[in-house]
Nucleic acid binder design. Structure first.
Lengths: 224, 224
DNA sequence: AAATTAACATACAGGCTGTATGTATGCCAA
DNA sequence: TTGGCATACATACAGCCTGTATGTTAATTT
């Protein structure tokens, strides 16, 4: 019992209807709190040490519960990892969604989405989880169906809207390739590559493919 | 002792200088044979079950030796995996090299190299080893330094030779992104996607970036 | 031929995963 | 309110795996 947790000392009187000390949490609350603690602890460890080098005892200690609880809420270690990834993908999705201004023409939307994606992937550990560990642990199929599916779908849509290739390429086949380039860009930046240059290269690539003309010049300074 | 191996029954007379049965292999031969058996068995299992779900006892049974031999020749399980990957990368490299005709102009060389890469990646299990398990087990850095480094270098060279972007992009930053697209193309094809369309999309992407005009039409039939 | 080293095989000590089982508490119906 | 049931855990255990230490045989060196 590594975590003392201030156990309620016997509960003197059941008089007061206002539960101050013993805090009789509802089952729902207990479940939510436990799952959250596990997911948080697991994420931190998976990011820092990788899936293979993270043990369930470790996760449980970090979360302040026992393995019994873990295996009560999750099927197995992989399932725990899957749920961590799910949450991560949803967070990324929400972040991208929130950063996309509505009512843009197709090319602008495509470029805005591109930047939003790269921004979202800068959250610490996100690339490792979604792009490195995920595909190996869960398989590419499952991870793509999780996260990339959304990004790739947006991309496909954007490319189509920009009339890319004019029928000489399959957009369905092209989109995943471009999506992979985005992923690598995120990984490179996360690994310490020149973020500015990598970002610029990715956007150049998108414009090049979509046939969008280069912008005025550098972001802040406009040609007068 | 799972492998009987037809142990020489006591060796009746040491007379004949011609060693027929006991086959006194030199240490070098023993080492080579054992390492090869281990690498082959390990590759097969890593491809089929992944790194995490492959145990060293399993590998040893498949190779027909004991764990003692494995840990004599390799530092640990990761080292075994690393050697498997090394061999795989070298094989891919050799295959690409062999398929590259010399004396082509820059754009042709770039396209030829692109096709050669996709061809090389069609060897069964290669994408899983080099592109899925590798980055997760050894880290992206190490894997890139192994295989991609070569491919990315060729790509960078090819892009530069084609004067891509004309100074408006960093080729050094662009090359890894395109390399990632190649990898995804290989993975998609391996996963059962439309190989024809994926291949075409990848080549279109390369031409698009390098500013190479589309070929006449379909490979076999030329416009008259 | 003796000594040394390489190439294994065997045995063992931890650690981890998943499951079975026990317990206390929230919840619901009578 | 109270008895029964389900939920949310904790504990204990069996099996497997990894890496290391140690023993044994065969090749190589001296």
């Amino acid at each position: 019992m590594p975590r003392s947790k201030a156990k309620p000392p016997l509960r003197a009187r059941p008089a007061k209807p206002e539960p101050v000390k013993p805090a009789p949490r509802s089952n729902r609350d207990r479940t939510d709190a436990t799952r959250l603690a596990l997911l948080d602890a697991a994420r931190e460890l998976f990011v820092r040490k990788g899936y293979g080098d993270t043990s369930t005892p470790e996760v449980c200690v970090a979360a302040g519960i026992t393995r019994g609880a873990l295996y009560h809420h999750f099927v197995d270690k992989r399932d725990l990892f899957r749920q961590v990834l799910l949450r991560e993908a949803q967070a990324a999705h929400a972040q991208i969604e929130a950063a996309s201004p509505p009512g843009l023409d197709a090319p602008s939307a495509l470029l805005a989405g591109s930047e939003a994606y790269l921004d979202a992937m800068r959250v610490a550990g996100r690339t490792r989880l979604l792009l490195l560990e995920g595909p190996a642990v869960l398989g590419l199929k499952e991870v793509l169906a999780l996260d990339e599916a959304h990004a790739a779908a947006s991309l496909r849509q954007g490319l189509r809207a920009c009339a890319v290739g004019a029928g000489s390429v399959s957009i369905a086949a092209l989109a995943p390739l471009l999506a992979a380039a985005f992923d690598r860009a995120a990984l490179e930046i996360d690994a310490g590559a020149d973020a500015q240059a990598t970002r610029a290269a990715m956007l150049w690539l998108v414009r090049s493919v979509a046939g969008i003309a280069a912008p005025a010049a550098k972001p802040a300074r406009r040609k007068h």
